[in-house]
Design a protein around this nucleic acid. Sequence first.
DNA 1: CTTGGCACTCGGGAACACAGAGTGCCAAAC
DNA 2: GTTTGGCACTCTGTGTTCCCGAGTGCCAAG
Lengths: 337, 337
Amino acid sequence: MVDDRKLAVLRAIVEDYVSTNEPVGSKALADRHNLGVSPATIRNDMAVLEEQGYIAQPHTSAGRVPTDKGYRLFVDRLSQVKPLSSAERKAIESFLAGAVDIDDVVMRTVRLLAQLTRQVAVVQYPTLTHSTVRHVELVPLSERRLMFVLITNTGRVEQRVVELPNVVDEQRVAHLRAMLNASLDGCGLTSVPDKVADLPELLPTEDRPLAATILSVLLESLVDRHDEKIVFAGAANLAGADFTVGLRDVLEALEEQVVLMRLLGETSDLSALTVRIGSENPYTGLQGTSIVAAGYGSGDKQLARLGVLGPTRMDYPVTMGAVRAVARYVSQILAAS
Amino acid sequence: MVDDRKLAVLRAIVEDYVSTNEPVGSKALADRHNLGVSPATIRNDMAVLEEQGYIAQPHTSAGRVPTDKGYRLFVDRLSQVKPLSSAERKAIESFLAGAVDIDDVVMRTVRLLAQLTRQVAVVQYPTLTHSTVRHVELVPLSERRLMFVLITNTGRVEQRVVELPNVVDEQRVAHLRAMLNASLDGCGLTSVPDKVADLPELLPTEDRPLAATILSVLLESLVDRHDEKIVFAGAANLAGADFTVGLRDVLEALEEQVVLMRLLGETSDLSALTVRIGSENPYTGLQGTSIVAAGYGSGDKQLARLGVLGPTRMDYPVTMGAVRAVARYVSQILAAS
DNA sequence: CTTGGCACTCGGGAACACAGAGTGCCAAAC
DNA sequence: GTTTGGCACTCTGTGTTCCCGAGTGCCAAG
């Protein structure tokens, strides 16, 4: 029913529509692609494709436009991810290599991706879930305040100022610091609560209130950041494109961490690309947009996800290539640091 | 030449135009504001105001629209900053009070300001220039790597991973850490380079390469952040407004740190509001937009600036009130922490 | 199954007319 | 001298009509 030629027609429709942004007709198809058949034949094929739901016409007697289902078929079976040019690879590598800390890595990544794809790029900060504790530091700020700093193996730093229940001297702080490090060093963040639970009992009675205060802040900071930080860039690239939904809605969605979170999704293993097309999108306010996302991480653990958001009518092979490449390079950078 | 009634007319024009977004004619003015004169009189006044350059007509025989010069006069002499309602104050206070660290403060502030003004909000991170060193920490990560952390009195944390020239033991690191803290504690960031210059000489010869490496990273991190970090929020609010310049240009400008920097400006003392109207704007790509900005800081030192960007046709009294209020509350928060 | 022919449909642009809001100016009134 | 009503004039924006052309579906012939 859907033979090879029909698939070729669908591919041609998607490609033409993506590049011209106008409904594509049978004549234009016959001209631009050498399919070896006449417009009339193509029309017949198009009628079938339309009946199957792969394409649609905006108005009676206009050209055809791919539906979400059509794009899906295109992405799954009719296209292959387009690798980047070596010049682009070079550029990515050198741009990312200059990063000085984790904030910088994320910032550079999101900008790079936006520039590369000419879409809106979204990058999630490396999750703490799979991270391990590298060091805990307690810094006295004044008699009754200290700063608590947690450094993870991904270079991420969590800091909190703690108000103390009573005046403490340097001695006790040093002791507590040593204990914390001895107990937590190299420990996965998810298991920190368990490890920490027994600690106060090992301390002299007079230190317990102090320890309890600090530990509660520590635990709180872990919970707080369970909703991960997400940044985006390239909003200017939205200005040209017109969505079925208003530009305002898209911008609003982008500023909602929670929505971004859900957009990037969570499934799939590290190297797989996720493509969400139009209505497949979990967030109803973003009809007419597609998301291409991938996981990244150091080693074999997926730390977080990144991707781009653009109009359903996007160049999937190129976008997918860029997202995949950037995800890989970021993984490299993180593994090296 | 420009008597009181003409000023009243100008004020009325600005107010009406801001609220309706349509050129305002003499008849409408006479109706909506009770100026006590007839449309014909108003027409005469308007002719004079136009000749002076305060208003203009988009086309022959359309209503009048304020020029940048007109808005300027309005802001300087015809309006007074509108204070927030007590409900709004409450909301601000409680929203900002929940912040856990400096990132959180900035993030909350920018969102708050965007929501309050329904414009794009821009907030600069507290500058390091006027900050003082609260603590320096050296954290060994492995044999040849350590993390260097600088904590300032504004709660800001700078961190860098340092690759060491040779293997060092805990002992030496501790010594260097103690020296650094003794030397830098409480010292203004601008004077750090001076203080640090003599340090290597006080150390035993074998420690000098180590010290030099770390110090160079320290100095570098100060320079790096001399271009301060700026964030914005509320881009969605741009969607409705139409600028003389394209939406794309505005969004692009917003993603350029350097441009944002110049937009916020640097002059003026702590409590003053800066208003840049249309062509007064230092960045030519943003014709048709105005910026309302204010400094904020803890105590009497200005740490950084914040503000909003919107169409020239904005409600200045309300916007100025919101910016001023938020700047004050942020200052309070920072002073308290 | 493919192809050329043909009648049909509709969207979008050009041409046009028109109402409405607003102006400028002038002479009369205060 | 300032204010006012009257009046002619000038635009913009909107609605209408009309027509072209791209594109389709169908059909009969290859």
